[in-house]
């Protein structure tokens, strides 16, 4: 006997993600999901972004990591409420983990929730968390072939932060060709060239993000 199923493999996750999204919208909260390789500089970009935005916006952070809470401790020092999720081996956050972590925040008092996903270019992309924006962080030291090798992240993201541009002269990366490749995958994507270490370009990225928070508040 054949049973017609026609049901999405991620439908259980998508259902919880939709509930999360509804909750975020009810609070007028903008939520971003930051994804990229281990070592791309996601946490450092986040720290610099917090330093710029924390004066004018009320932030909260969820840190995804397989085992440690090192990143959450770094964020804590910036005076922002932060919740660590340890996935215990899983290579990505899912909507249920985020739903559970949300209970620790007073969302009414927050305007921007930043979720830093587990460092990985592949797995997190398929798991919606209920976020408004997916943000890719790519560091030039990873090489300029990464967008073509991991296109789904760049196709699904609304912005990409190209980090470590202060090291450009020490690499073989051709920035124009890297940006062209990214735009061939996703012509609508915003591209920010930054160095989280020197602070270069972080202002433009933070201003764009602040604008998105204001649009969400309505």
């Amino acid at each position: 006997m054949e049973i017609n199923v026609n049901t999405g493999i991620l439908s259980a996750n998508d259902r919880i993600a939709a509930e999360n999204k509804e909750q975020f919208s009810g609070h007028g909260l903008l939520v971003i999901n930051i994804m990229g390789s281990p070592g791309a500089g996601k946490t450092t970009v986040l720290e610099k972004t917090i330093d710029i935005l924390a004066g004018s916006l009320k932030l909260a952070v969820i840190e995804g990591d397989i085992y440690t809470s090192k990143d959450a401790r770094r964020i804590e020092k910036h005076g922002v409420p932060v919740k660590q999720i340890n996935t215990g081996g899983a290579c990505h956050l899912d909507a249920k983990m985020v739903a559970k972590a949300l209970k620790d925040f007073d969302l009414d008092a927050r305007q921007l929730l930043i979720i830093e996903n587990v460092g990985n270019l592949v797995c997190p992309v398929e798991f919606n968390l209920g976020e408004d924006l997916k943000i890719a962080v790519l560091s030039i030291t990873e090489g300029d072939d990464k967008p073509m090798k991991y296109p789904l992240l760049f196709r699904e993201s609304q912005a990409v932060i190209i980090n470590k541009v202060d090291l450009l002269d020490f690499t073989d990366v051709d920035m124009d060709s890297l940006k062209r490749d990214i735009r061939k995958i996703n012509s609508n994507i915003e591209i920010f060239e930054v160095s989280a270490r020197t602070g270069q370009g972080i202002g433009e990225w933070a201003a764009w993000l602040g604008q998105k928070v204001n649009e969400k508040k309505g």
């Binding site: 006997m1 049973i3 017609n4 199923v5 026609n6 049901t7 999405g8 493999i9 991620l10 012509s187």
Partner: peptide
């Protein structure tokens, strides 16, 4: 043009089962 809409290729679902 770079303005291309995906028509297929993002599917990920259980289509059917056979039971006996």
């Amino acid at each position: 043009s770079l303005s291309m809409e995906i028509k297929s290729g993002r599917e990920l679902y259980v289509d059917s089962l056979e039971v006996d």
